[in-house]
Write a protein that binds this DNA or RNA. Structure first.
Length: 492
RNA sequence: GGCGGCGUAGCCAAGAGGCCUAAGGCGACGGUUUGCAAAACCGUUAUUCGCCGGUUCGAAUCCGGCCGCCGCCUCCA
C-alpha cells in the first residue's frame, strides 16, 4: 500500500515519496490576521493537521511550517488596494502590529481548541522583510523582474511555466479580467513583488527601491525556502489560492532557484454555510468563537470544538463542506457517542479482571486498524477512517455490555482509540476531566445533592417524586442516567 | 464570457466499471434493557445513485445531451 496523495499539479493521485527518506517538509498557507478565524479556516487547518498527524503516525519526521500574514495582503489588486491589516487597524484604532498580534493569538487559541497541533514554525511575513528584499534582488538580477517608480513587478512573460498549476494561459486571463490594471505594469498579468509606499502608509520598510512593502505572494516563497529548502515536499492551501497566489509563488521561486518549488500541491475545498458561500454580507459568516459559544443567529446551540472537527473529518478535504446547524448538531451527537464510549472503556479498565488479551478481539482490532490505514492511505479518506472509529465504538460497547473482557483486552481497545481517533484524527482526547471548569465543580456538588434526594425517593418507590426531580434538572439542561453503579449526570 | 467541480436515503456523507440487492454518522421507528427514562445493544429506514440516451456480458461508477446547484477567474482558508 503506502500513502497516495492527490497532487493538484498533475491532477492525479500519486504515491507519496519525500525528497529525503523519512523526512517531510510541509508548508501551508496560513491566515491573514485581520479578523477572527471562521469555519473556512477550520476546514483548511484541520485537514492539513490530519495530514501532518498521519505522516507522523507513519513514522515520518515532519517539519510543519505555516505562515502568519501580517503585511502585504491587499484588499484589491493593482495599486488601488489597501493593506488588509492596515485597513482593519484603522477601524479598530490600533497599530497594525498590535492588531496582527491580537488576531494571531486569537487564531492560535481557536486552533488549539480544534486540537490542531501547532506548526513547528509560524513565521511572520513582517519578520522576513530582509529575505523578501533579497529574493526581489535576485529576480531583478536574473531578468525576471523590472522596477517602475519604486515598485518591482514580476515579468510573467519571462516565465514559461506560468499557469501550469491552475491550467490557465495568460491570454484567457486577460479576456476575463475584471480589474483595472495598474498603469505601472508592462503586462496586465504581471504581479507585484515589492510596492512603493505612500508616506501615510504605516507599514513600510527601506529597500533598494525606496520605502515600500512586500507583495503578498512573496512571503510564502521566501519563508518556505528559508525553513524547508528550495524544493519542498508538500505545499498546502485553499483552493481559492491556487490562482493567482500559488501560481505566482511557483513563478518567483522557480525563476530564482532554477529548481522545482513544490513536489506535491494539496488544495482543500471551500465551505458554505446553509448552502451559500459564506460572506459577511449574507449574514452567514460564522467565526469559530461564535460556533463554540453558539452566539450566532443561525445556530441553535453551542458546539464542542471537537464536534466541529469531527464534522469536518466526516467529509473529504477536497469536497466542499456545507455547515448548517443540522450538520453541526449531527456532528455533536456523533462526537458525544465516541467520547462517552472512550470514557466508559477507560473507567472499566481499572475495574476489569486481569487476564490475557482476547484473541478474537485482537483480530478485530487488527482488521479495524488495517481498514483505517487503507482509508487514510487513499488520499486521506477521513470519512471512511471516521467510520472505522464508529465500528470501534460498537465493538467497545459490546465488550462493556458483556462485562467479561479482561483489563488487557480493554486496554488494547483504548490504545486503538488513542492511536486512530486520538493521534491521527484528533477527536479522542488523552484525558477527559471529570468536571472541566471550576464552575462545573460547583454545579457537580449541587447536582449530587439532588441525585441523593432522588435516589432516596426511588428506594421508597416514590417514583413520582423521583421523576419530578429528574424533570426539574432536565429543564436546567442536566440529564440523569441511572447506571448499574449509580446515577450519573451530564449536560444536555 | 473563460476555467473547474458537484447532484447518492428525511439530513450529512463514502464508494469511481463486477466484492454495491450502495460504508459510516445524524434523525425516525420497532425490540432488548430500565420502576419509567437516558445510555447502550439488536433490527427497520435508497432494488437504487438528478433526468434521458449510449458504450459494455456487466455502470452510481465510462461517454453524450439536458436540468439543477456551487466555486474560481478580484481580496478571501
Amino acid at each position: 500500500m503506502g500513502l497516495k496523495l492527490y497532487n493538484s499539479l498533475t491532477r492525479r493521485k500519486e504515491d507519496f515519496e519525500p525528497l529525503e527518506e523519512g523526512k517531510v517538509g510541509i508548508y501551508v498557507c496560513g491566515p491573514t490576521v485581520y479578523g477572527h478565524a471562521h469555519l473556512g479556516h477550520a476546514k483548511s487547518y484541520v485537514s492539513f493537521d490530519v495530514l501532518v498527524r498521519y505522516l507522523r503516525y507513519l513514522g515520518y519526521n515532519v517539519t510543519y511550517v505555516q505562515n502568519i500574514t501580517d503585511v502585504g495582503h491587499l484588499t484589491d489588486d493593482a495599486d488601488q488596494g489597501e493593506d488588509k491589516i492596515g485597513e482593519a487597524a484603522k477601524k479598530e484604532k490600533k497599530h497594525p502590529m498590535a492588531l496582527a498580534e491580537s488576531y494571531t493569538c486569537s487564531y492560535f487559541d481557536d486552533m488549539d481548541k480544534l486540537n490542531c497541533l501547532r506548526p513547528d514554525i509560524s513565521p511572520r511575513a513582517s519578520g522576513h522583510i530582509v529575505e523578501q528584499i533579497g529574493l526581489v534582488k535576485t529576480l531583478l538580477e536574473k531578468g525576471y523582474a523590472y522596477e517602475v517608480q519604486g515598485s518591482v513587478y514580476f515579468d510573467v512573460s519571462k516565465f514559461e511555466d506560468y499557469g501550469k498549476l491552475s491550467g490557465r494561459n495568460t491570454d484567457e486571463m486577460l479576456a476575463g479580467a475584471r480589474v483595472e490594471v495598474s498603469a505601472d505594469k508592462e503586462n496586465p498579468v504581471d504581479f507585484a513583488l515589492w510596492k512603493r509606499a505612500e508616506p501615510n502608509h504605516i507599514m513600510q520598510w527601506p529597500s533598494p527601491w525606496g520605502m515600500g512593502f512586500p507583495g503578498w505572494h512573496l512571503e510564502c516563497s521566501v519563508m518556505s525556502m528559508k525553513y524547508l529548502g528550495k524544493t519542498i515536499d508538500i505545499h498546502g492551501g485553499g483552493l481559492e489560492n491556487k490562482f493567482p497566489h500559488h501560481e505566482c509563488e511557483i513563478a518567483q521561486s522557480e525563476a530564482a532557484n532554477d529548481a522545482q518549488f513544490v513536489r506535491y500541491w494539496l488544495h482543500n475545498n471551500m465551505v458554505t454555510v446553509d448552502s451559500q458561500k459564506m460572506g459577511k454580507s449574507l449574514n452567514n459568516f460564522i467565526t469559530l468563537k461564535q460556533a463554540f459559544s453558539g452566539s450566532h443567529e443561525r445556530l441553535t446551540r453551542s458546539y464542542d470544538p471537537l464536534a466541529v472537527r469531527q464534522l469536518i473529518l466526516n467529509s473529504h478535504y477536497r469536497s466542499p463542506l456545507d455547515f448548517s446547524d443540522a450538520a453541526l448538531f449531527a456532528g455533536q451527537s456523533g462526537y458525544g457517542r465516541i467520547t462517552e464510549t472512550v470514557k466508559a472503556i477507560r473507567k472499566r479498565v481499572d475495574a476489569a479482571a486481569e487476564g490475557e488479551l482476547d484473541n478474537e478481539v485482537a483480530d478485530q482490532l487488527a482488521q479495524l486498524k488495517d481498514k483505517f490505514e487503507a482509508a487514510m492511505d487513499d488520499d486521506l479518506n477521513t470519512s471512511v477512517a471516521l467510520s472505522v472509529v464508529f465500528e470501534l465504538v460498537r465493538l467497545a460497547n459490546k465488550l462493556l455490555e458483556d462485562n467479561s473482557a479482561t483489563s488487557t483486552t480493554l486496554e488494547a481497545v483504548d490504545d486503538l482509540f488513542g492511536a486512530l481517533g486520538g493521534d491521527v484524527l484528533g477527536i479522542v482526547r488523552d484525558e477527559y476531566p471529570q468536571v472541566s471548569a471550576a464552575d462545573d465543580a460547583r454545579v457537580d456538588n449541587v447536582v449530587k445533592i439532588v441525585i441523593g434526594e432522588r435516589s432516596a425517593a426511588r428506594e421508597q418507590k416514590d417514583f413520582a417524586r423521583a421523576d419530578e426531580l429528574r424533570k426539574q434538572l432536565e429543564s436546567c439542561g442536566i440529564i440523569l442516567e441511572d447506571k448499574p453503579d449509580g446515577t450519573q449526570w451530564r449536560w444536555k
